[in-house]
């Protein structure tokens, strides 16, 4: 989490308006879900990889690591689709039968895997080039109620404070052999989880006082320093996505 986040904050494309990157990501996902065939999915995956690692300058290993977690689910999911379950009805000795699905269904399963990989590559592009709060600010501009967006932005801040607390807490427990056996593990985790809740609430109360000292009375307005998205570039991205749609429809 820390690594993905720090790449997003320090990357070459950090300063590009979040609206443009979100537009690209959602556009590509739409093409992938609605238009593209197997070849198109491979093309999308390659393009997004090129964009993320090549143009946006995300380190290759970071990119690969970000793909690792979804990959596990994908493989398991696709393999499940390869198998068909049947019930043998009414016969003695009958029961559950397992069989490989017919070739067309296998192809369909592989296609789902390819499509998912293409969409994941678009998601990873967004995650690795855009700091999360920029997206929250964008959502607020797009009409998400101010209070909800405020809560989300504050959550982002608190989450690092608590993450630090969790990390050092777990370390200190490890140093005192809290994870030396399975039963101790459960007990130590519970101590940590229980201890974090009052700390989290305490953080909230203290932050409330800290913000009131600066005139907080319910609204968390700040001045964003992000560039406004340019209509020209947004148009360019939309055009690019349309072209991608056309090309993928053509190659199937």
């Amino acid at each position: 989490m820390r690594q993905l986040d720090s790449v997003a904050w320090t990357g070459r494309w950090k300063r590009r308006p979040a609206a443009e990157k979100l537009c690209l990501c959602l556009g590509v996902m739409t093409v992938s879900l609605a238009v593209a065939g197997p070849g198109g999915q491979v093309l999308i995956f390659a393009l997004m990889a090129l964009l993320t690692v090549g143009l946006a300058g995300v380190p290759f290993w970071t990119w690969l690591r970000a793909l690792l977690l979804p990959a596990g689910f994908l493989v398991l999911g696709v393999l499940t689709l390869f198998v068909s379950v049947g019930w043998a009805e009414g016969e003695a000795g009958g029961g559950v039968t397992l069989a490989l699905v017919p070739p067309t269904d296998r192809e369909a399963a592989v296609f789902v895997g390819l499509r998912s990989a293409a969409c994941v590559s678009a998601l990873v592009f967004l995650a690795l080039t855009t700091p999360l709060p920029a997206l929250m600010t964008l959502l607020r501009r797009l009409g998400v109620p101010r209070d909800v967006a405020d809560v989300a932005l504050l959550m982002f801040r608190f989450l690092w404070l608590l993450f630090h607390c969790l990390e050092t807490g777990r370390r200190s427990q490890t140093a005192r052999l809290g994870y030396a056996s399975r039963s101790r593990w459960l007990r130590s985790s519970a101590l940590l989880a229980a201890g974090l809740l009052p700390r989290a609430l305490d953080r909230g109360t203290r932050m409330d006082a800290g913000l009131r000292a600066r005139g907080y009375d319910g609204s968390l307005a700040t001045l964003s320093s992000e560039e406004r998205p340019s209509l020209l570039r947004l148009g360019g991205i939309a055009g690019g996505v349309l072209v991608l749609g056309g090309v993928t429809a053509w190659i199937g």
């Binding site: 801040r157 109360t205 968390l220």
Partner: peptide, 16 residues
């Protein structure tokens, strides 16, 4: 208004 901070802190707790 102070519930905003507490809600956010609890949300972060759920994430953590």
């Amino acid at each position: 208004p102070e519930l905003k901070l507490l809600l956010a802190a609890s949300g972060a707790y759920v994430f953590i």
